[in-house]
Amino acid sequence: MKRWIPLLVFAVLVAFFAKGLFLNPREVPSPFIGKPAPAFTLPVVGEAERTFSPADMKGKVWVMNVWAPWCVSCRQEHPVLMALAQSQPVPIVGLNWKDKDREAAALLERHGSPYVAVPDDLDGKVGIDYGVTGTPETYIIDQAGIVRLKHVGPIDPDTWKSKFEPKLKELGA
């Protein structure tokens, strides 16, 4: 009997680890799903006179992508967003989060912009309102301005197909 004790202790540990591993999943169910998207009005990068507010998009289903020029994962998803901007009709807005070095305009110039507008959230307050804990994060917002989906981490073609497309179809976009 005695010789099984180490194994038993280990089994208990493993059970706790397994629980702990999935306790803090990156995919936090956002409290905003089904709630109105927090309102804001921000200047738009590269267009001196223009401001952007979620209210501008009323009546449309749209996607808001939170990104930053200093964020490497965002660079990884950039070509995916470029392709999506070409191939499907849903407009993508790119919230430029905490861009302290003011690099967004130059970067989009160089690599192209998948966005219809790039609101400039310099101090990160809007991001905080949306519960952003890191970039990139992406939201689907419907015709009535209700948040329908939140995705944490970069988008690749698979996540778009499996996660975004069904939701967009359901919303009739």
Binding site: R3, W4, P6, L7, F10, A11, V14
Partner: peptide, 12 residues
């Protein structure tokens, strides 16, 4: 789980 569990089973 495989490595440690396996080795502990072998030990027992």
């Amino acid at each position: 789980a495989v490595v440690i569990g396996g080795s502990l089973v072998l030990f027992a």
